[in-house]
């Protein structure tokens, strides 16, 4: 049989249409992108108040003890645990912002401020969204972003995707794990609170249900700078308090809206972009990526349709082959 022009065009049209479908559905329509995930009403979180922090690093040491982490040595004498940043051996770190003479605490110019870096426990976390094997999970109740090394394949997509650069992979071992703060969920299971909040001498890091944390943030926002106020330590409602004058806060609580909100909130007297926290939009990156992905592959309907067209077209082409006269 010869392929007449008509059949040829039909075949071409079928295959072409299939490909065109694939190409067209590749363009996402924003309307179909999913919204940010909502926070669980039982979510727990942490509040770090840079103005209360004295830079003692008790949280860093407490975290290491609670999580069995080794020293992270970065000096020649190798005498001290001196993490430069969060890393496979360090789940949280206190960093120093210093400007000019660095004389005044919590002041942007000629001042200094401490800032904590650790997992933000996003409400809509990228790391959970990108993990191909569900090794990174978000607890439906507490909202804690946890990790299971037994499932993890070590692709490090979580490391690459996190907008805060939090998950840390080990590179110095043939059996590397991802390391990050899991809000001491093993301690919480025993009824304890995260070690960083437990040991903080000034209540700069404080643990509590996110509803209580939100209230506490509003209370601190209403404080007048310089006036004596009572600050709690360890956990909200602990009764372990101390009194000190409130500082001047910047009008920005980091983590309230960033990438759809985080369960670790930060308050400070210095703008956050100076403290190494990027300005981030409200829409989560996970929702955008999943929006595209689900627009294309929801229920595998589009790929199935395309495949149908392709099979039909390929079948036509192989018929031509079958009847090839050459044998």
């Amino acid at each position: 049989m010869s392929v007449n022009r008509r059949d040829f065009i039909k075949g071409a049209a079928g295959g072409g249409a299939a490909l065109a479908t694939a190409a067209v559905v590749s363009v996402p329509s924003p309307a179909q992108a999913r919204p940010n995930l909502e926070m669980s009403p039982n979510a727990v979180g942490l509040l770090y108040d840079s103005t209360l922090c004295v830079g003692c690093k008790a949280c860093v040491a407490g975290c290491k003890e609670a999580n069995g982490l080794p020293a992270d040595v970065n000096t020649d004498d190798a005498l001290w645990d001196t993490p430069l940043d969060i890393g496979p051996k360090t789940y949280n770190v206190i960093k120093l912002y210093a400007d000019g003479t660095a004389d005044h605490k919590d002041q942007e110019k000629d001042g200094f401020a401490f800032i904590k870096k650790s997992c933000m426990h996003c409400v809509d976390p990228s790391c959970v969204s990108v993990c191909p094997v569900s090794a990174m999970t978000k607890d439906k109740q507490t909202g804690i972003v946890g990790y299971n090394a037994d499932i993890c394949i070590g692709c490090r997509y979580c490391v690459a995707s996190c907008p805060f650069g939090v998950p840390q992979s080990e590179f110095d071992t043939p059996t590397p794990k991802i390391r990050k703060c899991e809000m001491c969920r093993h301690r919480q299971a025993e009824g304890k609170i995260p070690a960083c909040a437990e040991v903080c001498p000034t209540g700069a890091t404080i643990f509590g249900p996110l509803t209580a944390i939100t209230e506490e943030i509003n209370r601190r926002r209403a404080m007048k700078a310089g006036e004596a106020n009572v600050f709690e330590r360890r956990t909200l409602g602990s009764g372990d308090t101390h009194e000190r004058p409130a500082a001047q806060y910047v009008n920005h609580v980091y983590g309230e809206t960033e990438v759809g909100g985080t369960q670790f909130r930060h308050m400070a007297g210095v703008p956050f972009d100076k403290l190494g926290y990027p300005n981030l939009r409200e829409k989560s990156f996970a929702s955008e990526s999943e929006g595209i992905q689900h627009t294309l592959y929801k229920g595998l309907i589009a790929p199935a349709l395309v495949l149908g067209g392709l099979v039909w077209a390929a079948k036509r082409a192989s018929h031509i082959d079958d009847e090839h006269p050459e044998e």
């Binding site: 770190v93 960093k95 120093l96 912002y97 004389d103 000034t202 101390h242 100076k274």
Partner: peptide
């Protein structure tokens, strides 16, 4: 006696900076 001290010391250099070369 139990009230926390206000640290008078300037921040020592033993803290990691906001941006560390890595």
């Amino acid at each position: 006696i139990h009230a926390l001290a206000t640290l008078k010391t300037n921040p020592p250099t033993s803290y990691p900076r906001i941006v560390e070369e890595q």
